[in-house]
Design a protein around this nucleic acid. Structure first.
Length: 412
DNA sequence: CGTCCACTGGAATCAAGGGTCT
DNA sequence: AGACCCTTGATTCCAGTGGACG
């Protein structure tokens, strides 16, 4: 037995409901993907020629978040490895463009999955893109196989960097002698292709596969499939899975959400020391997820962004429900002065506000006040807990002790 | 109906900071 | 050490723009 320690009481108190946590993780690749066999077959049919060194068509996979796009591709990758264990005929490369969203990063990732020789690895910064292109192309051509490159969340990269890398990746075959590269792009933005240049558009979308959202029943099946592996299902109330499924079905059939919901519900139950998972746990799990999502975003904000957000909060507290860019900027300048931070230009602050809007932290709409000008109408759109979190941030500690200059006079 | 405000949105550019290469 | 390269955040410039006011 282990010696008693600070964790002992915690571990003992905890009821174990989930046998295997990993299975409920959305990154886990199950052996069975319910309601996706048709899509799997479709894709397999297209890329099967790669096993005999014939280049398959490029594929564009379109579908909302949590419709199983990534899971299906990873599953196929796993199966491909089984079919060709030594990567003699084809190699499967997966890059998530949301995680690495710079051209350099994407290329670096692809290259280092292909290049096995440690001495030839590409440094994570420092080279020119041209050089990586050249090096990668040369390396690929020393082999004689089909490279299947999966670019997940491909639209993220495109938004930031345009289509240069896609151009390179789709034209690479013209300079290759022995090997061939085929691209599988995954996007959740159906309109993504509209913004591509025509040439790349037709190349990338040689084959298109649409992943429709799951409906309630399908979500239930998916959850159930995982639940029997992960749980002692006796410990789940009967209405838990249907409830999780129903909640996520409202959110466009997002299976990832459904799984998160189930996992966190069980987590909360365990932590409370309850011995069953109930619908009430699901409810609090839902709240927790929503809150976590926002606080995660807040944490990664730059100092300047936080200051801008703080300005919006301050203005709201001063009784301004809606405000203009100018209002925010005034407060922003004031806050910067108090906490001793350099101020940005109004143009930049306006940009930061737009970013906060896109993140859903504030609500901003451009509105014209006629002759009184045109500006954004900004509203705070954040739960209390988050506001508290921002305010308690260390960078604003000077602000608390500081008494704001009286701007409005209210006589009682 | 035209004017004109107070910004917006986009593009080009800069500076700093990460790094490699010779 | 100096020449380059990429990324990121910030800056500068400038041509719009919706609609209340005159």
């Amino acid at each position: 037995m282990t010696e008693p320690n600070v964790f002992t009481q915690y571990i003992q108190k905890r009821n174990v409901i989930v046998k295997n946590k990993k299975i409920l993780q959305s990154s886990y690749i199950p052996d069975k993907l319910p309601h996706r066999t048709d899509k799997i077959n479709e894709i397999v049919e297209i890329i099967a020629p790669s096993l005999s060194k014939d280049k398959p068509s490029n594929i564009l996979i379109i579908g909302k978040t949590g419709t199983g796009k990534t899971a299906v591709m990873n599953y196929i990758g796993k199966e491909l490895k089984k079919a060709d264990p030594n990567r003699e005929n084809c190699a499967f490369i997966y890059v998530n463009c949301e995680v690495v969203d710079t051209p350099y990063g994407i290329l670096y990732n692809i290259a280092n999955q292909i290049i096995t020789d440690p001495s030839k690895r590409i440094p994570f910064t420092g080279w020119s893109l041209d050089k990586i292109f050249a090096e990668l192309t040369a390396y690929i051509d020393t082999e004689d196989k089909i490279f299947i490159v999966v670019l997940d969340e491909i639209d993220r990269s495109f938004q930031k960097n345009g289509d240069d890398i896609f151009y390179y990746l789709t034209t690479i075959n013209e300079v290759l002698n022995s090997s061939r590269v085929s691209i599988i792009g995954i996007t959740n933005n159906a309109k993504f292709t509209e913004f591509l240049s025509p040439k790349i558009k037709s190349r990338l979308g040689e084959e298109k596969i649409i992943f429709p959202p799951y409906n309630v029943n399908q979500l239930q099946d998916i959850l159930y499939e995982r639940a029997i592996e992960a749980f002692d299902t006796e410990l789940l109330d009967d209405d838990v899975i249907p409830y999780c499924a129903a909640l996520s079905a409202q959110e466009m059939g997002d299976a990832r959400r459904a799984l998160d919901l189930l996992r966190i519900s069980a987590d909360i139950a365990e932590r409370n020391g309850d011995n069953r998972v109930t619908a009430a746990h699901v409810k609090s799990a839902k709240n927790k997820i929503e809150l976590d999502a926002v606080s995660e975003v807040i944490k990664t904000l730059t100092v300047q962004s936080k200051t801008v957000l703080m300005s919006v909060i301050k203005n709201t507290e001063e009784g301004m429900d809606v405000m203009t860019t100018g209002d925010v900027f005034t407060t922003y300048k004031w806050i910067c002065e108090v906490i001793g931070q350099s101020t940005l230009t109004q143009r930049r602050v306006a940009g930061l506000i737009s970013e906060l809007d896109m993140l859903g932290i504030v609500h901003a709409r451009v509105k014209s006040f006629g002759r009184a000008g045109r500006t954004k109408e900004i509203e705070l759109n954040t739960p209390k807990e988050i506001v508290g979190m921002v305010k308690s941030d260390e960078i604003f500690k000077d602000l608390e002790s500081y008494r704001p200059p009286k701007q409005t006079t209210l006589d009682f």
